[in-house]
Design a protein around this nucleic acid. Structure first.
Lengths: 340, 340
DNA sequence: TTGTAGGCGTTATCAC
DNA sequence: GTGATAACGCCTACAA
């Protein structure tokens, strides 16, 4: 990292345009009370010198950085990358910049990142999920920094939530499979440590099954990191015992894709022998054969709405605390009625 | 967006610690010339007040923002999302923050983003490809802002390049398919407008084929946006004429996956009737059946190396202008010898 | 409509 | 080893 070796500043523009710095500032900030002629001169001078305002000075003086921070688990998972893509695009329309960190699914590390983003001047933060280090929330509150929790529907008092109910989604998955006549289930979940979304889906799934008389202990839950081979390995584990499930709910399409792949390679017919239900509706859901039945997560929409929310004025924001988005069941070929 | 409603600042810490602001600043910046006892008091005071430094003020005074900017085409494509993930992770290790924009493959829009990132204080920039608006490069040079071009090997004088030679990669693809005995080719490329990586692959591919006596005009090139259905549609186009290729080179695994999908759905045997060669080696390359033969792009490595490069001192950076990474051919099932 | 002057929070340069 | 003081570049009363 190098010291900034800038150059022209506002006062240089003023000199070239033969006016005062104040006038230049006014032109640059679209202050209407400035003569057409002078404005022209200033604009020309600024262009000629290739003047770029110093954001730090501007922020220091005006108390506005036009910077929004986001801390997400990882960009190496399409469900988050897509959300960030749409978040950034929306912020960009309003000339707000995004400063981005990853937490690697660790809420203590997330706290450090949040702290750093605040230090860098983030005026609002986008986080993922409802589970955070209490220090994170305390810091945000102390500094009165607005924030939005995404992929969840559990809002904090001072924060907002834009997302969906993971438990409900888990129940929806269970209901769908139950209605197909299945009675022997399993789940391949994401790592639930520090991850309330993954955990919520498990809880909802098991809950709904329990209501239908399926004992929790009879439903094996294997956790895996979000990649294809982990999904395949989990499926192998599930089918290494004596009792085989006829329906497997996966916490992500990535895991589901791995599960389907394992079945294909080991001759297990999908969905005849086993139904596989995914989550997210990523692009890969249409790549497996059969294609994945899955629960669609509105990633782009969350990103856009989160951006819109943090760009509201404090007044407007005050009374909007949560926004529940719906999870859509997309039925494709990987699920079917239970084998008789 | 709201005005920052901060609170405690350095002088408050100084008061509580009963010392001067200068001393607090020294402690916070690990300046060794400060008494152990006072240092203790300052640290305690800062913790008690939940003090967070004001980055804008610090940047203004010290001329250091510890901010690196990146402008990539989109995060909605794993090849870039992965690179950014590793870039961010590496920067984060050194407490440098990433400020991120997308260009949507438009070099004029990219210029605006670059300008904005500079205004926000980015001390160095990461860009993608070698093709940019001349104004972008001029601005970077004028301000002496170091930058790295990724996914390319064509360095600018003042900039560095960390990536690979797309034309060479195209030639490698052609060579591989020629060696399998193919003589009738086609290519499904990404949109080449403003995209020298996509264009380079086409050029290299056609060049190498030409050297082997395959006329350029005999090789249809269809362009498509980077999604599965575009790949499928392109494949359909290629097979709607009288002459069918026996080998199709795709500019991305996403397009290749779509191509394979089309073949599966329309009964075309891969690789018996047609070989399909991908690019990138994304995770999805192992999801199609047959799995994709592809050219592996070192996305994570590029991100890490780009981070390392911009964090070098000016002196160290001066003599390192390019770093060529190798493209590895990963042979899987989607390619085979030409049908007889 | 335009200019002057002061200060945003921090760090660097001096003194002591 | 510690403290006063003056900038960093910009914006915004206030004055003219």
């Amino acid at each position: 990292m190098t010291t900034r070796a800038d150059g022209t500043k506002l006062i240089d523009v003023a000199r070239l345009a033969a006016c005062s710095p104040a006038t230049v500032s006014r032109v640059l900030n679209d202050n209407p009370s400035v003569g057409v002629e002078v404005r022209e001169r200033v604009l020309r001078a600024a262009a000629e010198l290739g003047y770029v305002p110093n954001g730090s000075a501007r922020a220091l003086r005006s108390m506005q950085t036009r910077l929004v921070g986001a801390v997400i688990p990882t960009l190496d998972h399409a469900i988050y990358a897509t959300m960030v893509d749409s978040l950034q695009a929306r912020l960009s329309e309003k000339h707000v910049s995004l400063i981005l960190s990853t937490s690697m699914y660790d809420i203590d590390f997330e706290f450090e990142q949040v702290r750093l983003l605040i230090e860098r001047g983030a005026e609002a933060l986008i986080l993922v999920g409802a589970r955070h280090n209490p220090k994170t929330i305390a810091l945000l509150n102390q500094r009165h920094i607005p924030y939005v929790l995404t992929y969840t529907f559990t809002a904090d008092r001072p924060g907002a939530a834009i997302g969906f109910d993971n438990e409900k989604a888990g129940r929806t998955g269970a209901r769908f499979l139950l209605d197909l006549g299945h009675r022997r289930f399993a789940m391949i979940a994401g790592i639930t440590h520090d991850n309330d979304r993954a955990a919520g889906r498990v809880i909802g799934f098991l809950d709904e099954l329990a209501k239908a008389g399926i004992a929790r202990e009879s439903v094996p839950v294997v956790e895996g990191v979000y990649n294809i081979s982990a999904g395949a390995a989990a499926m192998k584990t599930l089918f290494s015992g004596a009792e085989h499930p006829t329906a497997v709910f996966c916490g992500s399409d990535i895991l589901a894709a791995g599960a389907v792949k394992y079945c294909t390679e080991s001759g297990l017919k999908v969905p005849d022998a086993v139904s596989i239900l995914g989550f997210d509706n990523l692009e890969i859901a249409e790549l497996t054969s059969p294609e994945l039945t899955t629960l669609e997560v509105p990633a782009r929409e969350m990103g856009r709405l989160a951006a819109d929310h943090v760009m509201l004025s404090t007044m407007q924001r005050r009374h909007i605390h949560q926004r529940e988005l719906s999870i859509r069941l997309v039925v494709r070929g990987s699920t079917g009625t239970a084998p008789t």
